[in-house]
């Protein structure tokens, strides 16, 4: 092996790893706040990527319609849950969030593509659509189950994954799509070639991580989310609306998922079901990080990316086997370090 290949593999691994890191962070965030193991994260990736690709190709993505339909259902759920104390202000607020917002987004998504908007507009529109889906998904599927066990939430999560993946096939077809790159710049540094896209991956990952750090460290909502993660009941007692925390967590996770998708889709062709596997690699990182530690998850994600790129070079057949087996030694270490006294779980 020569240095060029080594550096190339490392670069490739770090680029993928950066994306896994984003996904891992989102998974940790959602799990900590809502106890939901977010399997539909993969769908947020594909929806973001394919919506962006469809918009760029001048089409109207079906996800925009899905967002409106989910908004209508969520509105019904919201009205039903506040039926005992129905105020006009509440109804108007719910109508704005659950109906007006996705309706405006759908109108934009229908009207804009014919006018050839720029990359930035397409990205913004894709993020809005997926953000709406993420928010409404929590309201419809998970908020009514918020009090149940991790297992029930996990199964519900699987149900959402299946349904959304099915919608993906309906909207985008079985053929894969590619999107236009964010920039056409290329830089060379020694033997390495940096495309504008890979630079964007690094830049956006770092920026998002910094933003999350600022959000959790210095804002009221961020602190409310952390409080919910540590102790739901305690958070409620001090006046934090835990369902709001859940909605914010899903909103963040869906936006992060969509951004990851938009970052990947110019590099590789994405299919309606690709997201699942990409999301699972984010999982591997999140598990290695113990589902609690953000920095550890980020480091683990980079390791996962590097292991993946090296194993695809040396043993491409066993690439997935190697990546997913990576978890086992970590699990063994964790089980050896397991605490002696374990409080009962309900």
């Amino acid at each position: 092996m020569n240095t060029t290949i080594l550096l190339f593999l490392l670069q490739d691994g770090v680029t993928n790893g950066a994306i896994y890191a984003l996904l891992g962070l989102a998974l940790v965030l959602v799990f900590a706040v809502t106890r939901v193991i977010l399997i539909p994260q993969g769908e947020f990736i594909t929806f973001g990527a394919l919506t962006y690709a469809t918009l760029s190709a001048g089409g109207v993505p079906g996800t925009a319609q899905l967002a409106l339909v989910m908004g209508l259902v969520a509105f019904g759920f919201e009205l039903f849950s506040v039926r005992k104390s129905l105020h006009l202000a509440k109804v108007v607020r719910a109508a704005l969030i659950y109906i007006a917002f996705p309706a405006v987004v759908l109108a934009l998504a229908t009207w804009l593509p014919a006018h050839k908007p720029g990359v930035a507009v397409n990205i913004a529109l894709s993020l809005l659509i997926v953000a709406a889906i993420g928010l409404f998904l929590y309201r419809i599927a998970f908020q009514p189950l918020a009090h149940t066990s991790v297992l029930v939430l996990l199964i519900a999560s699987v149900g959402c994954h299946l349904a959304l993946q099915g919608f993906g096939l309906v909207f985008f077809g079985a053929e894969g799509l590619r999107g236009p790159p964010l920039s056409d710049v290329t830089l060379t540094a020694g033997p390495l070639l940096f495309t504008g896209q890979s630079l964007a991956v690094y830049g956006i990952t770092l920026a998002l991580m910094a933003a999350l750090w600022l959000f959790f460290g210095f804002t009221r909502y961020g602190k409310a989310l952390r409080a919910t993660a540590v102790n739901r009941l305690g958070a409620r007692l001090v006046g934090i609306r835990t369902s709001l925390s859940g909605q914010i967590a899903f909103l963040l996770a869906s936006v992060i998922g969509a951004i990851s998708g938009i970052l990947i889709v110019p590099i590789t062709t994405l299919y309606y079901d690709t997201g699942f596997l990409i999301g699972l690699k984010g999982f591997v990182a999140a598990i290695i990080g113990g589902l609690v530690s953000y920095p550890l998850t980020a480091v683990a994600a980079i390791v996962v990316g590097i292991v993946e790129s090296f194993s695809s070079f040396y043993a491409s057949n066993y690439k997935e086997v190697i990546v997913f087996t990576l978890i086992l030694p970590v699990l063994v270490l964790r089980s050896l370090a397991a605490p002696a006294v374990e409080e009962e779980k309900d």
Partner: peptide, 28 residues
């Protein structure tokens, strides 16, 4: 031996991981 001592959510996630690894192993 590797997984049952894990508590709570590690166990389901761990089983997803080796479930996928074994699936790919069968197919390779």
């Amino acid at each position: 031996l590797m997984t049952v001592r894990l508590s709570g959510h590690y166990l389901p996630l761990g089983t997803i991981a080796w479930g996928i690894a074994l699936y790919y192993l069968f197919s390779k």
